[in-house]
């Protein structure tokens, strides 16, 4: 379980995260929802120790972050994380060299799933394929948690569909996923848990299923209540 406890983050005089607490369970897909600039990316970076927080703490399976955690948690940011001149197979080699948790077999399966060519250079890929490749580099790691920053934004419909489909396969299933998005239309059916962010606070954290059964509300219904 990833636990975020009362974190606060300032950029200069501006406090982006005022008091954020939530948790994400293994095997669940947790979605951070908020308008642009609500600090979703900042939270993910804070979990990954890519950014220091001013207050609060983050625990992963009950432990503070160490460098070894990068074998346990993977992060796929909304930009490519490898140099553009590299071929996909070069990236595989790089990942194999540096990560114990790199899973070659899964990488190949994902390659087939996304219909990508191993010998292609990253700079020659289309925007959609680039997003898929970027995601592949994260998903092919044998990690317990995957953090995805805006995996669906700015790419074409078919690529989006393909990426969404991967969540229902055993390539992802069983792992804890935290993803951020600012529009949930196409992926509503994927999500188990929702964390609603506004003005630097967590407005609501709820289980989608439970919400529907107990109060008969969809995610959008809750969002409308809270944000509008």
């Amino acid at each position: 379980m990833i636990e975020v406890k009362h974190i606060q983050k300032k950029f200069g005089r501006k406090t982006v995260l005022k008091d954020i607490s939530f948790h994400a369970k293994e095997g669940h897909i947790t979605c951070l929802i908020g308008i642009n600039g609500s600090g979703k990316t900042t939270i993910l970076k804070s979990i990954m120790n890519l950014m220091s927080v001013n207050r609060g703490e983050i625990l992963i399976d009950g432990h503070q972050f160490t460098e070894a955690m990068y074998e346990k948690v993977a992060y796929v940011p909304d930009v490519l994380t490898m140099p553009l001149h590299m071929k996909i197979k070069d990236v595989f080699q790089f990942m194999r060299d540096f990560y114990k948790s790199w899973n070659d077999q899964r990488a190949d399966e994902l390659l087939t799933f996304f219909k990508l060519d191993k010998n292609e250079r990253l700079k020659n890929l289309s925007k959609g394929n680039l997003a898929k490749a970027n995601m592949l580099f994260g998903l092919a790691l044998d990690v317990d948690y995957i953090l995805l920053d805006e995996p669906f934004s700015g790419i074409d419909m078919f690529s989006r569909e393909q990426i969404a489909n991967v969540f229902t396969t055993d390539l992802v299933e069983g792992r804890g996923v935290i993803l951020t998005t600012h529009e949930i239309h196409d992926i509503e059916y994927l999500i188990d848990e929702v964390v609603l962010l506004n003005n630097g606070f967590v407005v609501n954290q709820f289980n989608v299923e439970q919400m529907r059964e107990e109060q008969g509300k969809s995610i959008v219904d809750v969002m409308r209540e809270v944000l509008v």
């Binding site: 890519l50 993977a74 930009v79 490519l80």
Partner: peptide, 13 residues
């Protein structure tokens, strides 16, 4: 367009 620093900083070392 790419931010390799993400990868470098996320290496388990």
């Amino acid at each position: 367009k790419n931010t390799f620093m993400y990868r470098l900083m996320m290496l388990p070392q």
